[in-house]
Design a protein around this nucleic acid. Structure first.
Lengths: 232, 232
DNA sequence: ACAAACCTGACAAGTTTCTGACATTCTCGC
DNA sequence: GCGAGAATGTCAGAAACTTGTCAGGTTTGT
């Protein structure tokens, strides 16, 4: 699916259809148009488009019927409904019938394109692994693993949570209050005596910074801590 | 992802947040809520929700910034923006920044639910995967058989279900709660005393890992278990 | 130099996980 | 339905590990 995504338009108004085709083609898609439900089904099965732009107000057949049939066939093409019937009930019905999005006429062409792009984004780009990077330190939140310079780090649950929070706020300074509230989940905690946070920071440091020359976890005296790449 | 889809809400207005949580929970989703951007990020990476409901008008940080950071990290969670700024420009900007859908306040709750369902529809559907492979371990869902290094494994029904679930979530860490809910199908279960899961994991391990030098089923202390190829 | 802020090693308490033994439930063929 | 054998669940104790606490020591800014 690395090629240009294909879009099929089912719309009976010729003038509207032509405008859509040329506008969407200009945006870099491969566009086909059908003026009737029958032609639409034919093209749907012939071209296997990634997205279907469906006008609900076709003369012969109700657009929702078409949608129902598409879904009952198990075709999982994305469907964006275009229609002048645009009440909350219309939208809910359309979405419940199996549409992925719904745009009422008249619409802004920019918004239509934005919605098309949003629907096709996941097809265009392969899902990247979600991770955070600070210098040569990498976090994989999905597997809850961390590595520095390629070396996997053995972190406990608390240590990973702490590092994650710092990484999300990289280059910012996070206070003890923030850590107490968001990582330790304690509101009543954080009496000045309580230095759990410092101890845990020290333990984290021992694992992620001590064995390496460049220190990423810095303390901001009087404020808190900050995870950042030091500037030379 | 046979489990209930998880939804995270980032919304600072407590009243609105509570209403959303209970309403969406009633619709059968697993809901979490955050009141600040920091908390939101933390939960996002900790729980890996399938959908994020994002209020753009947070006090400290602009919601679009959050969205940008999420996307630049490569996190591919679906995002539905909720906001009272609802012009065409707002919608286009939101969608272009990486949102999947956009709903202006005030909204109809029925429409919100319909849009949530539409966004998550593809996740709910069975993955339809027939064979899974992790290292030299192979599973065939059709025949419910498993083999390691070509050697067929004699697994009981429970053991196969457990292994299948772990395989479907390969490289991810699955918690005991997830296993209790999705493999054992018990909601009331999982009292800390109850260690059926541990015992069953031990039995599975005895069959799939003990006879082989490379261990695939790893325990992530404090979190759960993970089926993955270990890195050298 | 002083006080406040911060770091660190040691320890204890608490928690989590593993394991073997046993109890119960289920699944067959008969 | 009955009983053997397998599958699954329960339990208790041990082992391993994590986390919080505390008592000093060190650093830092004024």
């Amino acid at each position: 699916m690395a090629a240009r995504p294909k879009i099929l338009i089912i719309e009976d108004d010729r003038r509207m259809s032509d405008a859509l085709v040329s506008g969407i083609e200009a945006a870099g898609y491969d566009v086909n148009a059908a003026g009737t439900a029958e032609e639409g089904f034919f093209l749907l099965h012939q071209c296997h488009p990634d997205l279907l732009l469906l006008d609900l107000t076709l003369p012969q057949r109700n657009g929702l019927d078409i949608l129902r049939q598409i879904r009952s066939e198990g075709t999982d093409v994305r469907v964006l409904i275009l229609t002048s019937h645009n009440t909350v009930e219309d939208r809910v019905t359309g979405l419940r019938t199996g549409a992925d999005d719904f745009l009422g006429k008249p619409f802004s062409f920019a918004e239509l394109l934005a919605r098309i792009d949003a629907l096709l984004r996941r097809i265009l780009q392969p899902p990247a692994s979600t991770n955070l990077t600070i210098g040569d330190l990498t976090l994989e939140t999905k597997t809850r693993t961390a590595a520095r310079a390629g070396e996997p780090l053995e972190l406990t649950a608390r240590e990973f949570d702490l590092l994650l929070y710092l990484a999300e706020n990289r280059d910012r300074t996070v206070s003890r209050e923030m850590l107490a509230k968001d990582v330790w989940r304690e509101t009543s905690r954080y009496t000045p005596i309580d230095n759990v946070i410092d101890v845990q920071i020290a333990r984290l440091r021992k694992k992620i910074d001590d064995p390496y020359p460049i220190k990423l976890l810095q303390t901001v005296r009087g404020i808190g801590f900050s995870l950042r790449e030091p500037q030379p």
